[in-house]
Design a protein around this nucleic acid. Structure first.
Lengths: 355, 355
DNA sequence: ATGAAAGCGCTAACAC
DNA sequence: GTGTTAGCGCTTTCAT
């Protein structure tokens, strides 16, 4: 379908393509300028014809796309989409557009990385359990595509990372429960790992949880740790792991700390169906602070990340990289914030004996 | 940062760039083939050098990007992200990658449309109250970028649309409440409209709601209709409009039908805080069937769209368009499904007198 | 102030 | 089988 090109505009305006480009770019540099008259004419004709410069050709020529990509595992988790939201406003301020590539599985991930490595964007922000994407990150870097990691470790000094200290935030969440008087605290978590290596539960949160437990004089008990599958950071998985927890023999926990807020929401659903009241019978504390947590009943106590800020800063770092400025620090940590709402309270009266 | 090009590979392999292209493309057509030996050599050298074809150059040459864009208002609403998810698998099956462009406001929307019109993708799926995007849609079409509308009207016979009949689904939702015995049914809705024209509440759902009311022998009462602001299809807006509803004088409704599930979740939160039990004191029925609705307490009764299918079919239609096949129908309607969960039940015993 | 020409990296037509 | 050549649509020297 005959797209209208700069050539068409040039012909109709009786000028050269170079002039069309100059007129439209509005760049008044060097001795190169275009008279107000021709400029005007070119502009009207371009508008008449509905001319839009071919962005692909421009990108090829300028070796610059003015587009940033954000690679996320899936859009179903508001945690990632909130990061994207923050990143997008920061990008727009700097003249970049943001495009989101969801890569839920191996195939789409491979496809996405191949494309991104092909220079269709100037840089990419990887918000994607980045520890599992080391190869992909290196590949992108090798192609000259600048990258910044969000909420993952930097695999390379030239790839800056920004994240939240999840060991610490898990510690804070668990300590909150301890300070309420809980001693039997369960943890619902998720399997993770780099391909080719044996899978282990995501260890940061687990160790923060254990640290708080030990510090509070409670002995970590593996029967209280339920490990969901690989992509088990979902409401479904939360419901399933909570059900598994309730099935296990032995005295019940009086509180649950979950991998993230989605898991907490799923767990609360299972508890409600089992007739277990939150927080009277059992407390629930989530992790990451997605908006949904403020609207559940009871509203969810959580350790909130500053998600939008995370995205904002990632974009800022990426733009610095693109401008040739290397960032002051390779790994940047953002603080978290304990948000106490309604789902956490003191353990039930009878629980002390069960201890 | 010296990207490695096909030229580099050619030089090192002692062949021409054309051969490199041929070898890598693996296309065995016409008389054009490359000997197994050179093919092998090119491949290893390419791998050694870490060569990735420049996708921008390829796109320019082939006038084909093999990328599809999905334009969505924002990522915070799972409704849209579920559509994207469905679209993505369909796209991948056909060899296309999907990229998501969130366009929450005027600026980003303009930016996105300019880019998309510049040929950076082969086609775009607009899942974006498309009635408000008529100009943008026409612009894209004029640029030769194929477009398909999801959940909006087709503004042009050459732009196919796929959607759910929301008048009907609102009718079904309301009729469900009527059949449970409710007569005072409130509706929380959202302001919409095309720019330049006076804003009105999104009329489809409102009229389906009214139709069911009239049919059920209940008189529509505007005091029971609360209209949120422009982008009020959120949990926050649901909480606010529900609060507004409770503040209004006159007998309380025994049920609420909401614009969508997010609004329902927000409304349920307000009801819970006001000590109003759902469904014993008041029923709530949502609309669109996002996953979250299955995990609230009580679980949300809703009219589910087949969201993933919507995305899947949109991509199928778009690919047909790209292959030169025009779709059988310009507007395609998908059925909805009433999902009765826990948030709807008979009105409280005393409610009959209040009628 | 404007035009001619080169070239971004790739693929496809054609020649050999 | 493989190399040569042209050209996708744009921007950007360099002349004029």
């Amino acid at each position: 379908l005959g797209r209208v090109t700069g050539q068409d505009v040039a012909r109709k305006a009786g000028v050269s393509v170079a002039t069309v480009s100059l007129a439209l770019s509005g760049r008044y540099q060097d001795g190169h300028r275009v008279s107000a008259a021709t400029r005007e004419r070119v502009l009207t004709i371009a508008a008449d014809l509905g001319y839009t410069p071919n962005h692909v050709a421009r990108s090829l020529r300028q070796r610059k796309t003015t587009i940033l990509a954000m690679l996320v595992p899936r859009l179903g988790n508001p945690y990632y989409t909130d990061i994207v939201g923050g990143g997008q406003v920061a990008a727009l301020e700097r003249g970049y557009a943001v495009t989101v590539m969801p890569a839920p599985d191996r195939d789409t991930r491979a496809h996405a990385v191949r494309l991104l490595g092909g220079g269709i964007v100037d840089g990419v922000i990887v918000a994607h359990h980045a520890n599992e994407l080391v190869d992909e990150l290196r590949h992108l870097r090798a192609q000259g595509v600048q990258t910044v990691v969000v909420q993952g470790r930097s695999p390379d000094p030239r790839i800056p990372a920004i994240r939240v200290d999840t060991e610490e935030s898990a510690y804070v969440a668990t300590r909150h429960l301890i300070s309420l008087g809980h001693r039997r605290i369960a943890h619902l978590t998720v399997l993770g790992g780099v391909s080719g290596q044996p899978a282990t539960p995501r260890s940061d949160r687990l160790s923060g949880y254990r640290r708080a437990l030990v510090e509070g004089g409670a002995t970590p008990d593996n029967r209280l740790v339920v490990i969901g599958g690989f992509r088990a950071n979902t409401m479904e998985a939360g419901a399933a792991t909570a059900a598994e927890l309730l099935r296990r023999p032995g005295p019940r926990p009086t509180a649950i700390f979950t991998y993230n807020d989605l898991v907490a929401v799923g767990a609360m659903r299972t508890l409600a169906k089992a007739g277990i009241r939150v927080p009277e019978d059992m407390s629930v504390v989530g992790h990451d602070g997605i908006p949904m947590g403020a609207f559940t009943s009871p509203a969810l106590t959580t350790v909130a990340h500053h998600t939008a800020e995370l995205g904002r800063l990632a974009v800022a770092m990426l733009c610095d990289l693109l401008d040739g400025r290397s960032p002051d620090q390779v790994e940047r940590l953002l603080p978290t914030e304990l948000v106490v709402r309604e789902s956490s309270g003191p353990p039930p009266a009878g629980a002390a004996e069960a201890r």
